[in-house]
Nucleic acid binder design. Structure first.
Lengths: 246, 246
DNA sequence: AATCGCATTTGGTATGACCAGAATAAAGGA
DNA sequence: TCCTTTATTCTGGTCATACCAAATGCGATT
């Protein structure tokens, strides 16, 4: 049941699937990045150096660099020396952005992604209500107050809104969570930015945030989950018309 | 044919981003895939056709195809005509496999990913306990029975174990969830396969599954979550030694 | 020391060629 | 007629070379 037919992952013992010359170069550079020999921020060897060093043509050297860039291991802007980027959860998730953009064109994708986000975030508020520590509460409270202060300014409200939710993703202290949040918001942002904004709407959202916060403070996971679900369901109803004319 | 002319006012908004010739070809092919003109399974035009059609060199045509392949929109095996693949959630997640493989080399990554899985799966069993329908229960029960029958055969037990958990991901009827499950299992499989297996261990796991199932049947979300957490925590303790000598 | 200007470096693109595996058509045998 | 074998064509993979334009580096100028 292998649905991942993409060549990499294994350095050796690949039947006859792929035998590209660039594989060697890619593997070698990967190893250097993993070992720290090529630390984050340093420049990748120039293409003409790579061909000397590995005895390959520039075609192959270029392809190797391009593949590393596709994986996010190096940042290759046109006419700039490629910069090594130590992979993080964010770079991993950002590798999805392109393909997700394609998925967005299919009906139901936005809803599916949003539902997934709601599902995860419901679990997060529940977790917060059960396990939030005193300093966690403080951070949450600060985010809430910033959100309240930004009610008149829709642009700033959007930022503080995201920050409040981001705090929930940081509570479990698992770096994967914030990365997922950033990925979600990045994907859904285009749709959300199309949503008309108004201070009265901001106030409603703020009140939802406060309700969530209060439930967490009360150590009431069910209440927090209920509040979160209501909050995001309302937001969905508010934006669904902006892209789904049905 | 030189088309760089530098005076094209078509796209001037990108100050430092990218102005590669392959972008045009990539965009055009993306559009054809999205529109269905290039349906899933069909062949991409040959490189030499692309150069004729878009008036670019084979270098550029090749790079365009390579980039589509990197995004998972086409499946390009060496010396085979590239096959168009309509993007799905699985292809999206599989785009992560490479970069996640790199992340696995860093300490703590496996634990972080596993914790994320546990977190999500706990929410899933809770959801199942609250919203599973009669036919859902039936599927779950069938998976459980298959799991029990496979206790003596560790290989088969592994498969039915995964299938049981997969059922949980299918319950919300959100296609993103099963894709996430497949991604997680794909990433963690190498570590799990290293774990020694034995019928007695299988039996313990089966009992955990049954406990989860029973809690779902009893509409007891807290019990289901507790059982799931215990189950996966035990599994973690059992395998952590296989890669983390600490 | 700050600035300007030119030579160098470096990535992007274009050509043309050749190879090897794969697909297809042609030839041959059952 | 059908299947197997063989020759031809296709197609992607790689190499070599050359030129362009942007970015960089360095020395001369102010």
């Amino acid at each position: 049941m292998r649905l991942n037919a993409t060549s990499h992952d294994t350095i050796e013992a690949m039947p006859l699937a792929s035998r590209r010359a660039a594989d060697m170069v890619v593997a070698a550079l990967e190893a250097r990045i993993a070992s720290g020999e090529l630390h984050d921020g340093s420049f990748l060897p120039a293409e003409r150096e790579l061909m000397d060093e590995f005895g390959v043509s520039r075609t192959v050297a270029r392809e190797a660099v391009a593949r590393l860039a596709g994986r996010g291991l190096v940042e290759a802007r046109p006419r700039f020396r490629p910069v090594v980027r130590r992979p993080g959860y964010d770079t991993a998730l950002s590798a999805l952005s392109g393909i997700v953009g394609q998925l967005m064109g299919q009906t139901g994708t936005v809803k599916n992604l949003y539902d997934t986000r709601v599902f995860l975030e419901a679990a997060l508020v529940r977790h917060a209500a059960l396990h939030a520590r005193k300093d966690d509460i403080g951070v949450l409270r600060a985010a809430l107050e910033a959100n309240e202060a930004a009610i008149p300014d829709s642009a700033r409200f959007y930022a503080t809104d995201m920050a409040f939710h981001a705090t929930l993703y940081e509570l479990p202290r698992n770096p994967v969570m914030p990365a997922i949040h950033r990925a979600f918001t990045g994907w859904l942002r285009p749709h959300w930015e199309r949503m008309p904004r108004a201070p009265e709407r901001n106030r409603v959202n703020y009140l939802s945030h406060r309700e969530i916060y209060q439930s967490i403070l009360d150590r009431d996971p069910d209440g927090a989950e209920r509040a979160l679900n209501g909050h995001l369901a309302a937001a969905w109803e508010y934006v669904r018309g902006t892209f789904d004319p049905a």
